[in-house]
Design a protein around this nucleic acid. Sequence first.
DNA 1: CCCTGATTCGC
DNA 2: GCGAATCAGG
Length: 214
Amino acid sequence: MDWTDETIARLRELWSQGLSTAEIGRQLSITKNAVVGKAHRLGLPPRPSPIRNRKVKDGETPSTETPRRKPPTRKALAPKAEAPADLFVEKAEAKPVPVKVETAKPAAAPKPSPAMESIMASPPPRPVAKVEAAARPAPVAPEPRVAPPVRPAPPPRFTASIDRPARRGPSCCWPIGDPGTPGFHFCGATPLPGKPYCAEHAAIAYVKIRDRRD
DNA sequence: CCCTGATTCGC
DNA sequence: GCGAATCAGG
């Protein structure tokens, strides 16, 4: 993975929006490990981890001795059989994109967090926007009108610079331009009922998600 | 089992 | 620096 400014920006954005690492990975066409690894290296604010952070309660002395994992039996040295090279063709973008597949993953959307939900008065159904970088100009994700879930993490600077559509009410949040750059804005057209995107962008935003299994 | 994020450590 | 392997909790 070559981490260009572009991809890093996208990672940061998606990360700050509370998407799961796997989700981000899918959107970037990389593994979640890559996502987590990079995020960690970038020093991005940690997200609520499923792993209980070693008792922080008193009585415990987490400091001095950490649980330390068992001696790493690093057997990774065996790359094993190689993956069939032929499956490496672009499948997602090759085929025409059915517009109606957003039913692909109805309820399984990752829940952002309580805080986030309360902020989003009318949460657009988490668009399972499977985007192909090659095909479209860096669509980034719905309006980052939310602060990072819990952590008082430094709010992404770009939130301030993003011009919200002048019109009130629902508006298409298809990103135009690169997030973080001055000209960045959202489409703003009238979205389809129940969708975060206008008809035009919804058509390209929704792609079957689960076919990118690597 | 599935999912999640975190960490380690060979490369 | 990168990320697969691994860990570990839900």
